[in-house]
């Protein structure tokens, strides 16, 4: 006899042991879910807020910076456009995140459900990637701006030998790379931990289709 057929006989017998009453079930409805999707949702909200804060803290914390920014904005049409675009991009991400979250349905097939979750995760990944690229670019532009427009720094730089210049550029590059790497590792860790099992199961299902 097939092993599983033996089990089948037993399978439906064990109903009497763990019987919950209606009063046992009621309180469960009020409990908080601890599902991956919910955690993912909170993390993505936290990320949105985090990056918005990172971008706006200098504006609120330093008056001179605020003053300078306002000067720039008054004079420079391009910068205004850039900041409008960047807010539009954040809004776009919020919309995409909302939409992909909505599409996660527990009544889909297992494969479809996993795909929706991984798609949501992808939206967050692009958002983070976007912010990292912007952060990296800002650092580079910032260095460049300081080198050319800040008399103190550019004066010093003129006296640099080639070797010193090389070291200075190396340090700046290293700084940027380390900065990006640390954040990237941080995300790898969070999502790697959170989605490890999901990824495993998804790969397993995918393997079946080959």
């Amino acid at each position: 006899m097939d092993e599983l057929d033996l089990l089948k006989k037993d399978w439906n017998k064990e109903s009497s042991k763990k019987k919950l009453s209606v009063t046992d079930i009621y309180p469960m409805l009020q409990k908080k879910s601890s599902s991956i999707v919910k955690t993912l949702f909170y993390i993505s909200i936290a990320e949105l807020i985090f990056w918005i804060l990172v971008n706006s803290i200098p504006y609120f914390s330093s008056d001179t910076y605020k003053q300078r920014l306002e000067d720039i904005y008054q004079n420079d049409y391009a910068l205004t456009v850039i900041s409008i675009i960047s807010y539009a991009i954040i809004l776009l991400f919020v919309y995409l995140l909302y939409k992909s979250h909505k599409s996660i349905s527990v009544t889909d097939s297992a494969k479809k459900l996993m795909e929706s979750i991984l798609k949501t995760r992808k939206v967050i990944r692009y958002y983070v990637l976007y912010n990292l690229i912007i952060a990296g670019l800002s650092l580079i532009i910032g260095f460049y701006y300081a080198m050319h427009n800040n008399p103190e720094i550019s004066g010093k730089l003129e006296n640099f030998s080639d070797k010193q210049m090389l070291i200075a550029i190396s340090i700046m590059t290293l700084f940027t790379v380390v900065f990006v790497l640390v954040i990237w590792l941080f995300y790898k860790l969070i999502y790697g931990f959170l989605l490890k099992r999901l990824n495993q199961n998804y790969t397993e299902l995918k393997k079946l289709e080959v």
Binding site: S34, S35, I36, V106, D108, A110
Partner: peptide, 18 residues
């Protein structure tokens, strides 16, 4: 039938082992 689906989906994809 509906329960099978939700139950299995939760076990496979949504549930985080405490």
């Amino acid at each position: 039938t509906w329960m099978y689906r939700v139950g299995l989906n939760t076990a496979i994809t949504l549930y985080r082992k405490s």
